[in-house]
Simulated scan of single mutants.
Amino acid sequence: MGQDGFRVAEIDTTRPHPARIYDYLLGGKDNYEVDQRAGDELAAAAPEVRIGLQANRAFLQRAVRYVVGSGVRQILDIGTGLPTSPNVHEIAQEAAPDVRVAYVDNDPIVAAHANALLSSSGATSVVLGDLRDPQAVVDHPDVRRTIDFDEPVALLLVAVLHFLTDAEQPEQAVAALRDALPAGSFLVLSHATGDFADRSAAQAVYNNATATLNLRSRTEVERFFAGFELVEPGLAQVPFWRPDTTPPPRSREIGFYGGVARKTS
């Protein structure tokens, strides 16, 4: 039994999991053969996937620096995925040592690995939770131990909403989280899209995974920012959101939108 109450037998290693596929494609080691096969199939169906995931990770780093530079000292990272250095708390605390981070993911393996790597101080917490139940995430005692919802929070939904189907009401989940945040909070969001190429074969790779891949258009992704004001340059392909280096070759093929927005009231 793990500290979040899950049994090892509950960890499904018979089907690929998005977090472990992501880890494999980024060169990580916390994955299984089933995840590796899915990752190879995904790379064959969408040749830009590896540079896309790297660009998404770089977007996350720039966005975290931006929100911390804007004064936020609390981060709620939902769908955090397997630890990849530098982690969110490392990026944030390099800019401001007093930043607190609550990590949330629905994969017990992610929670176990993250708990093993993170300190037990009050500056970080790891929670086994699901974006599909946003109220349970907000009310979780370990989230509440780390995050004070009376003060501005940066909510990170990076490469996670595309694993929710429309029937699972992702817009309502984001709205519920938004309503828990005070003015001055930020939303950092990235989402896969098929706007730049037909990626139906890539979607099919996830049909046997623990979550399907649901590509959305620019207009559909923009709806997640309802109640927030996008900061410049607005919603953009992730390599082109405030780049701090020259975007890599083939960046215009990358099927990830990213944006950062502020809650003003």
Rank of each mutant, 00 (worst) to 15 (best):
M1F: 14
Q3M: 10
D4R: 14
F6K: 07
A9N: 05
E10L: 10
I11T: 02
T14A: 14
P16W: 08
H17P: 03
P18V: 07
P18K: 07
A19I: 03
A19P: 12
R20H: 11
D23G: 06
Y24L: 02
L25F: 05
L25W: 09
L26N: 11
G28T: 11
D30T: 13
Y32F: 15
E33G: 15
E33P: 15
V34E: 11
V34Y: 10
R37Q: 15
R37Y: 12
A38H: 03
G39Q: 12
G39R: 10
D40Y: 08
L42G: 05
A44K: 14
I51F: 03
I51L: 13
L53C: 01
L53D: 07
L53A: 07
Q54T: 12
A55C: 12
R57L: 06
A58C: 00
F59E: 01
F59T: 07
F59A: 00
Q61E: 15
Q61L: 11
R62L: 00
A63Y: 01
A63Q: 06
V64E: 11
V64Y: 07
R65W: 06
Y66R: 04
V67W: 03
S70E: 15
V72P: 13
I75T: 04
L76C: 07
D77H: 10
D77N: 13
I78F: 12
I78N: 06
G79T: 01
G79D: 05
G79Q: 05
S85W: 10
A96D: 15
A96C: 14
P97V: 09
V99E: 12
R100I: 01
Y103S: 11
D105L: 11
N106R: 13
P108T: 02
P108H: 05
V110F: 11
A111I: 15
A111D: 01
A112M: 14
N115C: 01
L117H: 13
L117G: 15
S119I: 03
G122F: 00
T124S: 13
S125P: 02
R132F: 05
D133G: 01
D139A: 15
P141W: 12
V143K: 04
R144W: 11
D150Y: 06
E151L: 14
E151H: 12
P152C: 05
V160C: 08
F163I: 01
L164C: 08
L164R: 05
T165E: 07
A167T: 11
Q169M: 07
Q169W: 00
Q169R: 14
P170N: 01
E171K: 07
E171W: 05
A173W: 09
V174I: 10
A176C: 12
L177Q: 02
L177M: 09
R178M: 06
A180H: 05
L181I: 09
L181A: 06
A183V: 09
A183F: 08
F186M: 02
L189A: 03
S190T: 13
G194D: 13
G194C: 03
D195N: 08
A197W: 06
A202N: 09
Y206D: 05
N207C: 00
A209E: 10
L213G: 00
N214F: 00
S217G: 02
E220A: 15
V221F: 09
R223D: 13
F224W: 06
F225Q: 12
L230V: 07
V238Q: 03
V238F: 08
P239H: 06
R242A: 10
R242F: 00
R242S: 12
P243H: 03
P243T: 10
D244C: 00
T245V: 15
T246F: 01
R250V: 00
G255K: 04
Y257M: 04
R262A: 09
R262H: 04
